[in-house]
């Protein structure tokens, strides 16, 4: 019939997936840049208070996180609020001072690194106040009360 009829098999041509890795890599880089590594595994339960005036933390990598909340492992640790540094619960609150001093490397002083206090909203102020006193002792004066946005 038609002159232009081609010979051979007719079928859908295969999709070129050569650039698929590029797209995936692009996604990968986006996630690498936009996110940060998961924090320590929390051994205390923390429900942060909400505040209207909270401001987003600017330099998240230059902040020490300190957690105060109710132990998850009630049988072992009891129900009283506890302080967690890095990945362990501490018994002596003075350890915070040593922890701040140890974290200050590369010519930094404890004053240069803000401390973010992540505290459960039902914890009593006594323990928070004591923690602040220890921070004052080592001159770690910049603190951030970690909150959720309202």
């Amino acid at each position: 019939m038609s002159k232009f009829r081609k010979d051979g098999k007719k079928g859908v041509p295969g999709i070129n997936s050569g650039s698929l890795p590029d797209i995936i890599f692009m996604l990968l880089f986006f996630f690498m840049v936009a996110t940060r590594m998961k924090e320590n595994k929390l051994q205390v339960e923390i429900i942060k208070p909400k505040a209207e005036m909270s401001v987003e933390l600017e330099d998240k990598d230059n902040v020490d996180f300190l957690y105060i909340g109710f132990p998850v492992d009630v049988e072992k640790e009891g129900t009283e609020p506890r302080v967690q540094l890095d990945d362990q619960l501490i018994n002596d609150i003075q350890a915070i001072g040593r922890w701040k001093n140890a974290a200050a490397t590369d010519g930094k002083t404890p004053f240069d690194v803000p401390t973010s206090l992540k505290v459960h909203q039902d914890v009593s102020m006594l323990i928070v106040s004591n923690v602040k006193e220890v921070l004052r002792d080592v001159d770690a004066l910049k603190i951030v009360y970690s909150t959720d946005m309202k």
Binding site: F31, M53, S54, K142, V144, Y145, D148, M149
Partner: peptide, 16 residues
């Protein structure tokens, strides 16, 4: 990783 937002109220404690 997480995309959790870190927000808070900044304060400076008084010098001892």
């Amino acid at each position: 990783t997480t995309v959790e937002m870190e927000a808070g109220i900044s304060r400076t404690l008084p010098v001892k």
